[in-house]
Design a protein around this nucleic acid. Structure first.
Length: 550
RNA sequence: GCGGGAGUAACUCAGUGGUAGAGUGCUAGCUUCCCAAGCUGGACGUCGCGGGUUCGAAUCCCGUCUCCCGCUCCA
């Protein structure tokens, strides 16, 4: 009992913390609800003046750390060998066939039926059943597809007719087990978990991809989708990148961009948004080395979050269980964060690192592969032909040193930019104690963002608005502004200005005081420790740069 | 999709049918040589939106949107 109570209190304080964070985000301009003046739009969020800088810094840190600053001449720590990195920027709307071959079309186009009684939801095509008659009534007893479907169907029917086990032979089964898709009239259908007939709704399309129409006058033939992930744009451009550059494998191709999914339940602030931004790498390598590369990327990506401040118990790397994996994948790991809005002990995904084998490239060559086959084979329709035809283009790679030709295997570190932003915000939000002017400890809200990520790198403040301090402070401000996003503030008491910067996550405050006028030194205040030290006016740029770069 | 709660100033909230409030924040001036200080001023509201009842609605009724919580879902 005590444990329950504690976890309840724990989650309540976590919810309160989350509410305070949401409130701060609104108040200070990190995040706003989309279309707010019109009442908002479920699942869409806007980044305000501070938020846009934070998110940009996260994306830029990712791009710099993964792509532009990558040393392709030496072997990175933990890497199996040298490799190259490059980038790409694809369109959001692509050829509709791409989503058929990627598998998104099938997965995102399920028809669902809801049970009004049990409140359960089923995939229309995964409910099967059989006609059965007894006591002068003929019903369609159903169950969810699976090994025990037949027994469950029978149990459902027995319950419905109020039969005991010994009466089972009074039920007359009629015809084979068929899919619910073969039944048009649901009035005589007994849902898999229902006690009465006719509780299932009509099948409704669950269109998890956003549909749009290409061409001003187009009908269904112009139907297309907003991409649900950036990855496919990289796969379909793999040959272009190889042909237009002198890159050799192993090669990683990175992309940052918006993706769109009709989440069923947008919730938890920006965690589950319908329009979101991804930071994805598709890393192409020789099949024999793919397992090592997978390990490398898994560890490398985890370390990236750690270095930027998501250290500690709230971040974890979780390897998927073997039975969670597709058989063609030798590994998938999630980097997860214990968001405050989740229950105690629960984690939410920030990034997935997946070993995808050659599934994607081959699907775009030959036609959509059936992930349940081994070895992978093209999924066929009822006519025996490929269900979804591939491009027919050869996407294999020829190693011009060994002359070996192969379809590369792919490691996919796929990160959510908005989720990372949210995690950094959650991690940064801190309430601590700081002394007021009387030395009394007061509550202080401070966003302890990593200096690299902080929207504003430094604030320049004249201690008082006289004695030439504003003029000198403005001079320093202009010098810094050429290099970083900095903020100038001369209004009001300095303590208030410090606290304002604390809430914005500004790591350093540069203050011009009486001594500055004498010896051209200023104080620099550290956001987290509240320590101050003196630096020459001319060294400010170097001092801030050194500290931001870490 | 279901059930529960909520929506009033930038933020947190009070306001049970009769002139829309408080605290914080914001802002101007004075003061102030280091952490939300003091003094004197100032601005800020279609009470989520739409409709209805009423002489009169933030308040009652209906609809709708959004947020939070619990289910469901999470490829």
């Amino acid at each position: 009992m005590q444990i329950d109570l504690q976890s309840l209190l724990g989650s309540r304080s976590a919810i309160m913390k989350m509410e305070q964070l949401v409130s701060l985000c609104k108040r200070r301009g990190f995040l706003f609800q989309s279309s707010e003046i019109y009442g908002g739009l479920n699942g869409f969020w806007d980044y305000g003046p501070l938020g846009v800088e934070l998110k940009r810094n996260i994306k830029e840190a990712w791009w710099r750390d993964m792509v532009t600053s990558h040393d392709d001449l030496g072997v990175a720590a933990g890497a199996p060998g040298v490799y190259a990195m490059t980038g790409l920027d694809c369109t959001i709307i692509m050829h509709p066939q791409i989503w058929k071959c990627s598998g998104h079309y099938d997965l995102f186009h399920d028809y669902m039926v809801d049970c009004r009684q049990s409140k359960k939801r089923y995939r229309h095509d995964q409910v099967c059943g059989r006609w059965v008659a007894a006591k002068g009534q003929r019903i369609f007893a159903t169950a969810q597809e699976g090994d025990e479907a037949a027994e469950q169907m029978e149990r459902q029917a027995m319950k419905f007719f109020h039969f005991r086990a010994k009466d089972a032979d009074q039920m007359q089964w009629d015809g084979p087990v068929v899919s619910l898709t073969k039944v048009d009239d649901f009035s005589q259908v007994l849902g898999p978990d229902a006690k009465e007939l006719g509780t299932l709704t009509e099948p409704r399309e669950f269109n998890l991809m956003f549909k749009t129409y290409v061409g001003a006058l187009s009908g269904e033939e112009g139907a297309a989708f907003l991409r649900p992930e950036t990855a496919q744009g990289i796969f379909v451009n793999f040959k272009n990148v190889i042909d237009s550059t002198r890159f050799r494998l192993p090669l990683g191709i990175a992309q940052v961009g918006k993706s769109f999914r009709n989440e069923i339940t947008p919730r938890n602030f920006t965690f589950r948004s319908r329009e979101f931004e991804q930071m994805e790498i598709e890393f192409f390598c020789h099949p024999s080395q793919s397992a090592q590369w997978y390990q490398y990327w898994r560890d490398r990506r985890f370390a990236w979050y750690t270095e930027l401040g998501l250290a500690g118990q709230r971040l974890r790397l979780r390897d998927h269980d073997p039975d969670e994996l597709s058989h063609y994948s030798t590994g998938t790991a999630d980097i997860e964060y214990a968001f405050p809005f989740l229950a105690e002990g629960e984690f939410g995904e920030l990034e997935g690192i997946a070993h995808r084998g050659d599934f994607d490239l081959r699907s775009h060559m030959e036609g959509k592969l059936d992930p349940n086959t081994c070895p992978l084979a093209v999924e066929t329709g009822e006519d025996g032909k490929p269900k979804w035809r591939g491009s027919g283009k050869d996407l294999s790679y020829r190693d011009d040193l060994t002359n070996e030709r192969y379809v590369p295997h792919v490691i996919e570190p796929s990160a959510g930019a908005d989720r990372a932003t949210l995690a950094f915000l959650c991690e940064a939000y801190t309430v601590d104690q700081a002394p007021d002017e009387d030395g009394k400890m007061q509550e202080r809200v401070v966003m302890r963002l990593h200096p690299r990520l902080a929207p504003i790198k430094a604030a320049v403040l004249p201690l008082v608005k006289k004695d030439g301090m504003p003029e000198l402070a403005q001079e320093i401000y202009r010098a810094l502004k050429r290099h970083f996003n900095v903020f100038y503030d001369e209004k009001g008491a300095v303590g208030r200005r410090y606290r304002r910067q604390d809430e914005a996550g500004t790591p350093y405050c540069i203050t011009v005081d009486g001594q500055t006028m004498a010896d051209r030194t200023v104080t620099i205040r550290d956001r987290d420790s509240l320590e101050q030290w003196r630096v020459s006016v001319d060294d400010c740029v170097g001092e801030i740069r050194g500290r931001i770069m870490g």
